[in-house]
Design a protein around this nucleic acid. Structure first.
Length: 509
RNA sequence: GACCCACUAGCUCAGUCGGUAGAGCACCUGACUUUUAAUCAGGGAGUCGAUGGUUCGAGUCCAUCGUGGGUCACCA
């Protein structure tokens, strides 16, 4: 067999230079230093250290700290030797601080250890805070503690790491050498914190519902399929938590949210990752107006808290998140941007002719509502740069939303758009079990005619509605996309720590 | 899934017309006690993504494959 040990090793270790390969010159040099450190009786992979300050604090509080002794810990990012003295830049989570290392202060033995330092090593240092001749706040190191030896060379200090494949596959390297990357994920983290706080303040309760579903419902999407061995049953990774959250509204919870991952078995692009983070919330006794208002308020509040402003810039485009956002019905948007008035279109034949005349693509299964939506996506969406709510979605494409009081062909539903991208989706929840059952049946029919994204029948959900669900407003917000706007990230991969990549395989044809 | 582009030292990149592979940083040796992309002198480092083909000769031309990126389609 050609698939010997070597191929197995490659497959299990997608990172170049792993065990089994010969060490290159740079790695050998580090192993040699490792041995030298061990020879001196020092543990190269340490156990414990208690820093008194972060790097940034030392700089910020220089006036108070000058002449005082501090302990810091972090990764060595630069070394500048000067014979019997030297400088090193130490990086921790807060930033960098310069260390000044002198043989006459450290002593010969300790200074020998300093000579074994490599870029990337993690050390602790204790010493007096001072300012150098050139004005840089530094620490005159009296003692160093070796905490972790780094056995691989870091990417270059000046140009950083640019190879996007390595950046995503080995995100830790990206985080070490590209400070902006860490900042983006910090913003994402704060944004999620701010969101939770905004919802908690408004009396919402965070809940957790199953990620593995026997029936994949709550959205139009292809699910990932898995299998439970003991129960010998097919399970789907959830495409949305919606149907479980509404069961909780039936159960008596009044304001709930879930902020977690959903999984959709679809293409990957700068706007799509197979798993992404979705916020869904439900407010009993509210409607789509309630949650539409909540959407603009919460997004503006989060931007204000995280960035200090509701005026953001995305890819060079100024965007004003300040409420209230523009509101326009889908029919009016199509009329405005495509010049086609669907209020005057009463038959499928007329809708199809309008689409044909305007070069709008539609599927054979589309009704008037589906064609209206196709018009909207083809002609109107691109114009929705500033935050805009599109309302009155066709019932045909909204199987879980309540019909409008004045027209059963439309629903009390909205989607929020920023920079032409859908960022929020909300509606008055359908709580009529008989209507819901009919909508499911229509979805099942579509599914049987080949639409893999149409809903499955969920009898238990209908049963829950039969016990009675109060009128409810529901909302979903795409967290990754919101993070993209707040961090001015071009690709969704830049706000997901470990975006999905193809599995690295062996090189056999 | 279709099309376009990329893949050269640990990293960032050059490489002309097809003629034995280059730079900066990093690394190694030496000098240097306030430098900061430290400096100075010397040195080592490559399966040019993989496989096949054309050719006297391929990093360079051709084909297939792999991985990544982009655009489109689908989707939030």
């Amino acid at each position: 067999m050609r698939q010997g040990v070597f191929l197995m090793t490659e497959e299990m270790n997608p990172i170049p230079g792993q065990a089994g390969e010969e060490l290159n010159e740079l790695m050998q040099a580090r192993r040699d230093k490792l041995a030298a450190i061990i020879d001196k009786g020092i543990e190269p992979f340490g156990r414990h250290y208690e820093p008194t300050h972060h790097a940034q604090q030392v700089t910020d509080q220089f006036a108070d700290l000058e002449g005082k002794t501090v302990r810091v810990a972090g990764r060595i990012m630069a070394i500048r030797g000067h014979g019997k003295a030297g400088f090193a830049n130490l990086r921790d989570m807060s930033g960098q601080i310069q260390l000044y290392l002198r043989q006459d202060i450290l002593g010969d033995d300790a200074y020998d250890v300093v000579h074994q330092f490599d870029l990337g090593d993690i050390i602790g240092a204790e010493g007096e805070v001072f300012r150098t001749r050139t004005g840089e706040v530094s620490i005159k190191v009296a003692s160093v503690s070796f905490l972790t030896k780094s056995l691989r060379p870091l990417p270059e200090k000046w140009h950083g790491l640019k190879d996007v494949e390595i950046r995503y596959r080995q995100r830790y390297l990206d985080l070490i050498v590209n400070p902006d990357v860490q900042r983006a994920f910090l913003v994402r983290s704060k944004m999620i914190q701010a969101l939770r706080r905004a919802l908690d303040e408004r009396g919402f309760l965070e809940v957790e519902t199953p990620m593995m579903h026997a029936i994949a419902g709550g959205a139009a999407a292809k699910p990932f399929i898995t299998h439970h061995n003991a129960l010998d049953m097919k399970l789907y990774l959830r495409i949305a938590p919606e149907l479980y959250l509404k069961r909780l509204i039936v159960g008596g919870f009044e304001k709930i949210y879930e902020l977690n991952r959903v999984f959709r078995n679809e293409g990957i692009s700068i706007k799509h990752n197979p798993e992404f983070t979705l916020l869904e919330l439900y407010q009993a006794y509210g409607d789509y107006q309630t949650v539409m208002k909540l959407t603009e308020e919460v997004i503006a509040a989060v931007a204000q808290e995280v960035l200090g402003t509701t005026q953001i810039s995305y890819q060079g485009q100024a965007i004003d998140l300040t409420p209230p956002w523009r509101r326009i019905t889908m029919t009016d948007a199509v009329k405005q941007f495509a010049g086609v008035d669907f209020a005057a279109i009463k038959t499928l034949a007329e809708a199809r002719k309008a689409a044909d005349d305007n070069g709008v693509h539609y599927e054979p299964g589309h009704g008037i509502g589906g064609i209206l939506n196709a018009f909207f996506e083809a002609k109107a969406e691109e114009h929705l740069v500033q935050p805009t709510f599109i309302t009155r979605y066709p019932t045909e494409i909204s199987p879980l939303a309540k019909r409008c009081q004045d027209d059963p062909e439309f629903t009390d539903r909205f989607e929020g758009f920023i920079f032409s991208r859908e960022i929020a989706n909300g509606f008055s929840e359908l709580n009529d079990p008989m209507d819901q059952k009919e909508r499911f049946l229509a979805q099942v029919a579509q599914r049987e005619s080949g639409d893999a994204e149409a809903h499955m029948m969920d009898e238990d959900f209908v049963t829950a509605l039969e016990y009675g669900m109060p009128p409810t407003g529901g909302l979903g917000i795409g967290i990754d996309r919101l993070a993209m706007f707040l961090t001015d990230s071009y690709s969704i991969r830049d706000v997901i720590l470990f975006p999905h990549m193809r599995h690295r395989d062996t090189n056999e044809g």
